[in-house]
């Protein structure tokens, strides 16, 4: 009787709803994995990344930072298929956020070099990180043996300092990064479900004396969330990978046009640095203005501030040039 009761309840609460979930279909814009990405997902599971990283944007406002909309069953259509005969569908949703949520990491952090440096040693890009390093996904190669096909990782001297040697990413590292880059929330056709809002104190800095700063969100916080991973909290970037913003001619230019353009469209004109991704889709005019003002007035920079209106003008101009 106890066995029958347990079996019935189990079927009702677990097996039945789980079976119903099998009917979920992917969203129209959702793409299947490439072979590289699929292999990357296997590595992600093998290394136990799910122990610290979630992949779910919950339907509450605080999770808005991890994605534009709450996650839904369709999002997992391709990622949660049975791996092989020996292994089940990967348990990606996770239960711990010791590290950040990765639902949208491909959009939040699209730069390949950053991911490779971060995997080789997380502390080479995020000083306070407690993530493990994955040196076994890389190999040291004598500089004269490096072929053009090799992906050399620009690791800074505090973390790798052997003359005549370079760090080269293995195929596995490239697969894992390909998987990370593929993680992008797909737009929903029509209206997407909303977040449950949160009662918060008003966050706009209405007290600021500068009229441009008034009614803008907190630029320092946004900078820390969006930009600091590459350009670092102190704005100095990382030599050989990410340029410094301190005293940068683009950042301190009296006309903010070039700077805002770089933020909107990305930048890849200088070969000694990694590529900067575009942020036009991710950041609003207010947010870009707040970030730009933070960068233009911090770390000894002393340039004029701008308003959301200024950003809007530049955005419109950019849109006209590249329809």
């Amino acid at each position: 009787m106890a066995i029958a009761g347990f079996l019935t309840l189990s079927l009702l609460i677990a097996v039945l709803p789980a079976s119903q979930m099998q009917k979920t279909a992917p969203l129209p814009d959702q793409m299947a994995f490439t072979e590289m990405e699929q292999e990357g997902l296997r590595l992600y599971i093998a290394e136990g990344c799910v122990a610290c990283h979630t992949q779910q944007v919950r339907s509450i406002e605080m999770d808005n930072v991890w994605g534009g909309r709450p996650s839904m069953p369709s999002d997992y259509y391709f990622s949660k298929q049975r791996l092989d005969v020996w292994r089940q569908s990967p348990s990606l949703l996770g239960s711990e956020r010791t590290g950040p949520d990765l639902t949208n990491i491909g959009k939040r952090q699209p730069v390949k070099d950053w991911h490779l440096m971060h995997l080789y040693n997380p502390r080479s890009v995020v000083k306070e990180s407690i993530m493990p390093s994955y040196p076994w996904l890389f190999e040291e190669k004598a500089t004269d043996k490096v072929t053009p096909e090799d992906v050399v990782v620009p690791v800074g001297s505090p973390f790798f300092n052997k003359p005549n040697k370079k760090i080269v990413a293995t195929t596995q590292a490239l697969q894992l990064v390909a998987y990370l880059q593929s993680m992008k929330q797909v737009e929903m056709p029509g209206s997407s479900p909303a977040f449950i809002p949160q009662n918060k104190k008003e966050e706009l800095s209405t007290t600021a004396s500068d009229p441009n700063q008034a009614l803008l969100p907190d630029g320092a916080k946004l900078y820390a969330n969006v930009c600091a991973a590459c350009h670092q909290a102190n704005g100095e970037g990382i030599q050989g990978a990410f340029p410094s913003l301190v005293g940068s001619p683009i950042v301190t230019d009296p006309s903010p046009e070039m700077m805002v353009k770089v933020i909107l469209m990305g930048y890849d004109a200088r070969s000694e640095f990694a590529q900067m991704p575009p942020f036009a889709d991710q950041l609003s005019n207010e947010e870009i203005a707040a970030i730009a003002n933070h960068e233009r007035t911090s770390w000894g920079n002393n340039a004029s501030t701008l308003s959301a209106e200024d950003v809007k003008k530049i955005r419109d101009m950019v849109n006209q040039q590249n329809p």
Binding site: P17, A18, S19, T24, P73, Y76, Y77, Q81, Q88, S89
Partner: peptide, 10 residues
């Protein structure tokens, strides 16, 4: 019954 979120329920 364990593909997609079925796995998560289980």
């Amino acid at each position: 019954y364990q593909n997609g979120l079925g796995e998560t329920i289980i």
